[in-house]
Simulated assay, not measured.
Amino acid sequence: MTQAVGSTRFETDFWKDAKSRKVWDDIVPGEPRESLPYTLTREAISLFCKAVGETNPLYIDEAAAKAGPYGGLVAPPSIHILLMFSCTPADDWMRSPGTVNAGQSWSYNIPARPGDVITLQARALDKFIRRERLFVVHDNVFFNQHGDVICSGRGQTIRPM
């Protein structure tokens, strides 16, 4: 099943492409992950805010946002969750069903705005096995069309066996 958001269609069946996703042996530390440019829309920001219960007027009210510190609408910092899936192809290893977030740390530099074309630079930094679990340490940096860093993060995930 897909849901349209602006001109982009998001797959909502997370198992649909599971067999095509990279597995443990395909993850090479240091190798860049493929990135797809994504144009962030006002509609995507609004739907994201609605989904997570975000009501800050800087994200959803054009008049209030124009009077605010950024001079217009911006996306909430947690939008990086949406961007992670929007900027990666269906076979990306971070999309594997059964992946568990084992911790993360994010730094936010500038807000993403409607109309920004977002790209991602990401890679696995390390992978290891502990207590019969597969761990990957990874980093992610999101940029706008001007090359400005929106946010960057490092995390660990437990991978499905």
Results as ranks from 00 to 15, higher is better:
85 F>H: 13
85 F>Y: 14
85 F>S: 09
85 F>Q: 08
86 S>A: 15
86 S>I: 02
86 S>E: 04
86 S>D: 01
86 S>F: 00
87 C>E: 12
87 C>I: 11
88 T>A: 11
88 T>D: 01
88 T>H: 00
89 P>R: 05
89 P>S: 07
89 P>T: 07
89 P>Q: 08
89 P>Y: 09
89 P>W: 04
90 A>E: 15
90 A>F: 15
90 A>R: 13
91 D>G: 05
92 D>V: 08
93 W>H: 05
93 W>S: 04
93 W>D: 06
93 W>K: 04
94 M>V: 08
94 M>H: 13
95 R>G: 10
95 R>H: 15
95 R>N: 12
96 S>I: 13
96 S>F: 09
97 P>F: 07
97 P>Q: 02
97 P>T: 07
97 P>Y: 06
98 G>F: 07
99 T>S: 12
99 T>Y: 07
99 T>W: 09
99 T>P: 03
100 V>T: 09
100 V>G: 03
101 N>E: 06
102 A>H: 06
102 A>N: 09
103 G>Y: 10
103 G>H: 12
104 Q>F: 09
104 Q>T: 08
104 Q>M: 13
104 Q>L: 08
104 Q>W: 10
105 S>E: 13
105 S>R: 13
105 S>H: 11
106 W>D: 08
106 W>V: 03
106 W>A: 02
106 W>F: 11
106 W>I: 02
107 S>G: 05
107 S>K: 12
108 Y>R: 04
108 Y>Q: 04
109 N>F: 14
109 N>I: 03
110 I>G: 07
110 I>C: 08
110 I>R: 10
111 P>W: 11
111 P>Q: 11
112 A>I: 05
112 A>C: 13
112 A>E: 04
113 R>W: 07
113 R>Q: 09
113 R>C: 08
114 P>T: 08
114 P>N: 12
115 G>K: 08
116 D>Q: 00
116 D>C: 03
117 V>P: 00
117 V>M: 02
119 T>S: 12
119 T>M: 05
119 T>H: 03
120 L>R: 02
121 Q>W: 02
123 R>D: 06
123 R>T: 05
123 R>V: 03
124 A>Y: 10
124 A>E: 13
124 A>D: 14
124 A>I: 11
125 L>K: 12
125 L>C: 02
126 D>S: 09
126 D>I: 01
128 F>H: 13
128 F>G: 06
128 F>D: 03
128 F>S: 13
129 I>M: 09
131 R>H: 10
131 R>Y: 02
131 R>M: 10
132 E>V: 06
132 E>P: 00
133 R>D: 12
133 R>S: 15
134 L>M: 13
135 F>D: 04
135 F>V: 06
136 V>Q: 00
136 V>K: 01
136 V>S: 04
137 V>E: 15
138 H>W: 12
138 H>D: 02
138 H>L: 11
138 H>E: 01
138 H>C: 02
138 H>P: 00
138 H>G: 05
139 D>A: 07
140 N>P: 00
140 N>K: 15
141 V>A: 05
141 V>H: 00
141 V>S: 01
141 V>Y: 01
